[in-house]
């Protein structure tokens, strides 16, 4: 693949980085990334990946744009309120960079369709809004041996980790063995979220995706990054692979993807 003249100019600031170069930029243009959720996290992730020239970006979301989304979901605008989020995302991302093939998916992600949805992608990004989806996404990414860049936010706090349970590194179940039962913790709409927090955490996820595609640096493979916007602190804690993990441990009990992805957003 040769660069067009406009591509040499568009990606010049990447190409002059020796860690990226022409070779790295071609890797980005050939990469296929699936983003779960076209919301607070999916917005900055997909926009930076599109700007970076990631060649194929799938984006999964079944919701329509709501006015209350615009405080943090920068893919969307007042003009796209009421439209499907992934269509609004398609317009924004394609306008940013026509090199990018954007694949909008309005289907609800379920345990039944998740493997087919993931199969054609190199990296999966989780920016979903509920625990059910997080476990389904984790298990599917594990079975298909795809790196999963997970981010989550609530109130003033965010978390980021790269999960590759098919290696000697943890999966989401090693990190959090169980989801909170519904009702024990406040919902997102009750708890609220600082809009710009989504930008911080989503751009951290985008950095990890780009590093994975380029094969550079040290992805957060065995560390959880915790960001506290109020304290303006970034801390990392160690996340070992759990030898007793029912998915990626020594004696796995989970052999297929199952579970509900119904919305139950809790802390």
């Amino acid at each position: 693949m040769e660069f067009r003249e406009d591509q040499v100019e568009r990606y010049s600031r990447h190409i002059i980085l020796k860690e990226v170069g022409g070779t790295g930029q071609k890797k980005l243009l050939n990469a296929r990334v699936l983003v779960i959720g076209a919301g607070g996290l999916g917005s900055p992730v997909s926009m930076y990946l599109a700007a970076a020239g990631v060649g194929t970006i799938g984006i999964v979301d079944m919701d329509d744009v709501d006015l209350s989304n615009l405080q943090r979901q920068i893919l969307h605008s007042t003009q796209t309120v009421g439209k499907p989020k992934v269509h609004s995302a398609f317009e924004t991302l394609t306008a940013m960079n026509p090199d990018v093939r954007v694949i909008p998916v309005t289907d609800r992600l379920t345990a039944d369709n998740v493997l087919d949805l993931f199969r054609d992608y190199d990296v999966i990004v989780d920016g979903s809004d509920n625990f059910g989806t997080r476990y389904v996404v984790n298990d599917a990414a594990f079975f298909l041996r795809k790196p999963l860049v997970s981010g989550s936010i609530l109130r003033f706090e965010g978390q980021v980790i790269v999960l590759e349970g098919y290696r000697e590194t943890p999966c989401y179940r090693c990190l959090y063995p169980e989801a909170p039962p519904p009702g024990l913790v406040p919902s997102c709409s009750e708890a609220g979220v600082l809009g710009v927090l989504a930008g911080t955490v989503g751009t951290l996820q985008a950095s990890e995706v780009v590093k994975l595609i380029l094969g550079i640096g040290e992805p957060l493979r065995d560390r959880l990054l915790i960001y506290d916007a109020l304290a303006m602190s970034f801390r990392k804690v160690r996340v070992p692979k759990d030898p007793n993990c029912p998915l990626c441990g020594k004696n796995p009990l989970i052999h297929t993807v199952s579970g509900s992805t119904d919305w139950a957003c809790s802390i």
Partner: peptide, 12 residues
């Protein structure tokens, strides 16, 4: 000592 709960927000 850090207390870290699972959080799931991101999309809505």
């Amino acid at each position: 000592l850090s207390i870290i709960p699972a959080i799931a927000g991101g999309s809505r």
